[in-house]
Every structure is written in structure tokens, then in C-alpha cells.
Design a protein around this nucleic acid. Structure first.
Length: 229
DNA sequence: GTCCCGGGCG
DNA sequence: CGCCCGGGAC
């Protein structure tokens, strides 16, 4: 599907905003697939602030996927202790063993192959393919889902999951480096501005292209509230 | 204290 | 669709 002009402007503004607004996070500094995998497993269930505490320790203790594969379950669980969702630590360990023994320690770069691994669903597969290997594929997590629904959705019908993935596919730049930035930027916008409870629409780089903002403004005009520009 | 949030899985 | 498990908003 081709991109319309509105979508092009949306992507451009998003990327410009990301350049100045992005937080510096350790897993954004690396293209090491294993490091990115570990960060994604942790981020599936935990806020950034806590992952910042666990991620460096985990990487220091298990520096490679082979090192993780060779480790005792007890040692892995110790590093995960306090993060919750312990099935994921077991999945990560199982994944490391599979990749170490059957794939020479090389994580696949193909989302379909990634998704066959334990604990890796559609989102994590896309995230690893894009963030580690610069594949121009979408990665739709809850943040991205929320941003897309608000910007491109309408009031009556919520967008279905398949619809959101299709929309994300049309928006992702074809260039790998730009795709990386786009996916990071979508999540950053969802985390910092387009938040679940009270979105900070005043600070939003794409408010002029957003149907949600448009809906808010028309509602406020009807009820005589101040225009939230 | 109570409620809400979240990827993947069964 | 409910569960896993902790944090944070209210």
C-alpha cells in the first residue's frame, strides 16, 4: 500500500522530534542482537527505569548467548529476581540453548524465524529484526498501538490488531536505518507524550496530523472549553 | 488499598 | 480470554 502525503509528513515530523527528544538508553547504543533480545525480554514486562538497573548486570553476568546457554537455571533466575514474570527468564534461557546449539549462537534476522523461538511473539520478533539487523519491518507494542489508534483511528471503531500491523507496515520507512529510528520514535512518543492516561497533546510533534487531537478540539469547542493548542 | 498496565502463551 | 508479577497512579 502506498503512503499518502499526511502519512509522509507524520513520519518526517516524528523523526525530527525523536532526534531531540530521545532518551539515551543502553540498548539503543548497540546493534548486538543478543543485547537487544535481552532488553526486549525485560522491557516486555517492566518499565524502563527498572530495566536500566537489571540489564547491565545481566549482560555482565551473561555476556553472550552462549554464556547464557551454558549457565545454570538457578544463576539465570537470580539475575531475574525481582523483575517478575519468571516464565520469561525460563523462555530466554531455553531460547539461548536452542540458538547456541542449533544456530551456532546466531540469532536469526527474519521475524518469522525469530517468532518460532520460545518467548518471542510478533512484537519481539519485529523489534529484534529491526533494532539489531535494521530490517524495515514494523514492531507494534502497546505504545505503538496507542499512537496509531489515536493518530489514524476514528472515534467509533477501534482498530483491530491486524489493521494496526498493516498500517505500521505502510508507515515504516524502507531504509533500514530510518526504519530503526521510526520504530524507536513511535515507542518513545507513546512512552513520553502519547501516554495511556493523560496524553500531553500540547507537546506532541504530530498533533496537527492527529485525529485524536482533532476530536478533542471539536469536543472542546462544542462545550466552550479552551482550545488546547 | 485499589485499580490499571503489559507480551506471550495455553 | 485469563494468567503471569511487580510498579505506579490515584
Amino acid at each position: 500500500m502506498a503512503m499518502d502525503d499526511q502519512s509522509r509528513v507524520f513520519v518526517r515530523k516524528l523523526l525530527i522530534w525523536y532526534k531531540k527528544a530521545a532518551r539515551e538508553l543502553p540498548w539503543r547504543d548497540t546493534r548486538n542482537p543478543y543485547a537487544i533480545l535481552v532488553s526486549e525480554f525485560m522491557l516486555q514486562q517492566t518499565q524502563v527505569s527498572r530495566v536500566l538497573e537489571y540489564f547491565p548486570r545481566f549482560m555482565a553476568r551473561f555476556p553472550t548467548i552462549d554464556a547464557l546457554a551454558r549457565s545454570r537455571p538457578k544463576a539465570v533466575m537470580e539475575q531475574w529476581d525481582g523483575l517478575g514474570y519468571y516464565a520469561r527468564a525460563r523462555n530466554l534461557h531455553a531460547l539461548a540453548k536452542v540458538v547456541s546449539r542449533t544456530l551456532h549462537g546466531q540469532l536469526p534476522d527474519d521475524p518469522v524465524q525469530l517468532q518460532e523461538l520460545p518467548g518471542v511473539g510478533k512484537y519481539t520478533a519485529g523489534a529484534v529484526a529491526c533494532f539489531a539487523y535494521q530490517k524495515a519491518v514494523p514492531a507494534v507494542d502497546t505504545n505503538v498501538r496507542r499512537v496509531l489508534s489515536r493518530v489514524f483511528g476514528n472515534a467509533k471503531f477501534g482498530m483491530r490488531n491486524a489493521e494496526l500491523w498493516r498500517l505500521a507496515s505502510t508507515l515504516v520507512p524502507k531504509n533500514g536505518e530510518r526504519a530503526w529510528k521510526f520504530n524507536q520514535a513511535m515507542m518513545e512518543l507513546g512512552a513520553l507524550v502519547c501516554t495511556a492516561r493523560v496524553p500531553k497533546c500540547q507537546d506532541c510533534p504530530v498533533k496537527k496530523h492527529c485525529r485524536y487531537t482533532a476530536r478533542l478540539n471539536s469536543r472542546n469547542r462544542i462545550h466552550g472549553r479552551a482550545h488546547p493548542e
